[in-house]
Write a protein that binds this DNA or RNA. Structure first.
Lengths: 151, 151
DNA sequence: TGCGATGGTTGCATCCGTACAAGCATAAGG
DNA sequence: CCTTATGCTTGTACGGATGCAACCATCGCA
């Protein structure tokens, strides 16, 4: 059904994935994928308790402790005690950490913009319409899904 | 520059990534990402010498030996001696291995088709035009890039 | 035939992710 | 207060990815 549209979308998805991968690559020389995953969640959901973060990512709390240990050590995150509750630990990005995530997004945007720059205004408009329609149809992806790919 | 098109494409890329991740997820319960990477290369480049495969993937030959060891053990690949050269070792997918890769692709296609099914014929046509234009502008992605994401 | 180059595997070391169980604080409620 | 629940960390164990160095077999060429 709708084979030609599907095929076109598949091809385009490969191209987009190339952009995604290239935007991600520099960050992955700094941190690992699971580590970057944690940074992304922190960037989008804000500072939070260790337990909540572990739950969001879908890993065991003890695993998160080790991961954040490494991120702390690298200067990407900080852990701070919560004033009115000495049990909980609040983890947040450092500037460095926030910047790493922002860099990836910015790079992705740049790559896409560069690609679009080679199109004619009419084609660009066609891309806009098509992409918007597709995005609308697909809806927001499950964050859990995206995490698999370190997004 | 062209901020609205770029934004739309970024959003669409997130949606597509969701599809990619979901198509990949079942396979990742069977093999690891580096292992799947090897299967993908074998599926697209065909059976080949260990050394060539290692080079294509970008890992040390000794690392590949271990990875293929595990894939062999799981029944995803087979190693065979080359008749006229007793030094070289030829790796190939088993049926099972080929099927795993094919399943992921098929699933991705299905997810995309399902998404498109909710659009009107006019919108679908717009998606086709837009996706084709984008893919044309982006060109074929560097296979090395895609491998990062287990494609 | 014998020596150097080639292709792959093994030994070894390291790091990361992962979970479970146990432990140690601290908070909360009776 | 004392007991139980909560939140996080530590101890322990394991598997996978990774690279380097050493090794072994084989090929090719002089």
């Amino acid at each position: 059904m709708h084979d030609d549209v599907t095929a076109a979308t598949l091809v385009a998805s490969r191209a987009l994935l190339g952009h995604v991968a290239r935007s991600l690559a520099p960050a992955l020389t700094e941190v690992t994928v699971p580590q970057f995953r944690a940074l992304v969640v922190l960037a989008s959901s804000g500072p939070q308790r260790m337990g909540d973060l572990a739950e969001r990512i879908g890993i065991h709390p003890s695993t998160l402790t080790r991961t954040i240990e490494r991120l702390d050590h690298g200067g990407w995150t900080v852990r701070a005690e919560v004033p009115d509750n000495r049990r909980e630990v609040r983890v947040d990005l450092t500037e460095r950490g926030a910047e790493l995530v922002a860099t990836v997004t910015a790079r992705r945007r740049t790559l896409i913009a560069e690609t679009l720059a080679s199109l004619s205004p009419e084609e660009r408009e066609a891309v806009r319409v098509g992409m918007e329609a597709f995005a609308r149809a697909a809806g927001e992806p499950d964050p859990q899904d995206l995490l698999e790919l370190g997004m």
